[in-house]
């Protein structure tokens, strides 16, 4: 380590301090290359944001970390263990240390709110009913929905469903919580609630969080560190402050939401004059 130049930013996570480290990741979906050599480190105890334009496979990254999908090449290590070298049983044991919040909550529709949060406890522990009840109510209280324990998922709003799913994701006190697009389609109030919850839970429970999102301002305001992924590669990384001064043109376009830039406003097409001219002669 001593022979290498010092990292440019003291906040940059290294392999030693990181809970998850992704190395040389390649992944293709059919013909489409989604990752083409990506290195990402997720620092322990921090909130790390993964940002990027739509369709860059940010959700894919979470599924790769969770071991649901296998990479073409490269490794994903969770706490030093290569996730994809594990057999089923140890993989499932490892997943108990991860929580995942799906985009729309993915609550089990045939169970009520209480049972949804109790689900991991009932599946993986033999705790007495009274203790399960206390644990579930505590977690529901933490997301502010203790009063909704008896409701069925279909009667919850989108934001409430995500909060219930968040309570479910942390009920086993995992080391890592992954958030898949937690802010999409939320009104400002429930967006604010979710942002506060992600930050507070991370600090209070000593979690490590990964937030995948393209809501730049929201996610940067709660993240300790951020990666911008586009075209199968990491194009920029750093603390939110550092990213604000990034030189990469694509990253700047993305962060500032400019309509034209490296990502063209126009879908590739022959010049407009040519197309229109063709019409006139016919």
């Amino acid at each position: 380590m001593s022979t290498q130049p010092p990292p440019p930013d003291p906040a940059t996570p290294t392999a030693d301090t990181s809970l998850v480290s992704v190395r040389g990741l390649h992944f293709s979906h059919g013909q489409r290359v989604i990752y083409d050599g990506v290195d990402i480190d997720i620092a322990r105890g921090k909130v790390t944001a993964i940002m990027g334009p739509s369709g860059t496979g940010k959700t894919t990254l979470l599924r790769l970390i969770g071991g649901q999908w296998r990479p073409g090449r490269g490794t994903v290590a969770f706490d030093g263990v290569n996730v994809h070298a594990l057999r089923r049983k140890p993989l499932y044991a490892l997943r108990r240390r991860m929580g995942m919040l799906f985009q729309h909550g993915a609550l089990l529709t045939d169970l009520n709110v209480f049972e949804n949060v109790a689900f991991p406890l009932r599946e993986h522990s033999d705790l007495p009913e009274a203790l399960i009840r206390d644990l579930v109510l505590l977690k529901l209280d933490a997301v502010g929905l203790r009063g909704a324990a008896d409701l069925m998922p279909e009667s919850l709003s989108g934001g409430m469903a995500r909060r219930v799913a968040l309570a479910r994701a942390v009920v086993f006190d995992p080391d890592l919580v992954m958030y898949d697009e937690p802010f999409t389609g939320q009104d400002p109030i429930s967006m604010g609630v979710l942002m506060r919850l992600i930050r507070d839970l991370n600090n209070a429970l000593g979690l490590t969080s990964i937030v995948v999102s393209h809501d730049v301002d929201e996610v940067l305001s709660i993240a300790d560190y951020a990666y911008i992924v586009a075209g199968g590669k990491v194009i920029a990384a750093g603390t939110p402050d550092a990213l604000a001064h990034t030189e990469d043109p694509l990253a700047r376009q993305f962060l500032r939401g400019e309509a034209d830039g490296p990502v063209r406003f126009h879908y590739p097409a022959p010049a407009l004059a040519e197309s229109l001219g063709g019409l006139r002669t016919s």
Binding site: Q68, A93, R96, M98, P120, E123
Partner: peptide
């Protein structure tokens, strides 16, 4: 609705 995926991630 990702319920099956969610179960997998909950190690079920």
């Amino acid at each position: 609705t990702d319920q099956l995926s969610a179960m997998e991630m909950m190690a079920t």
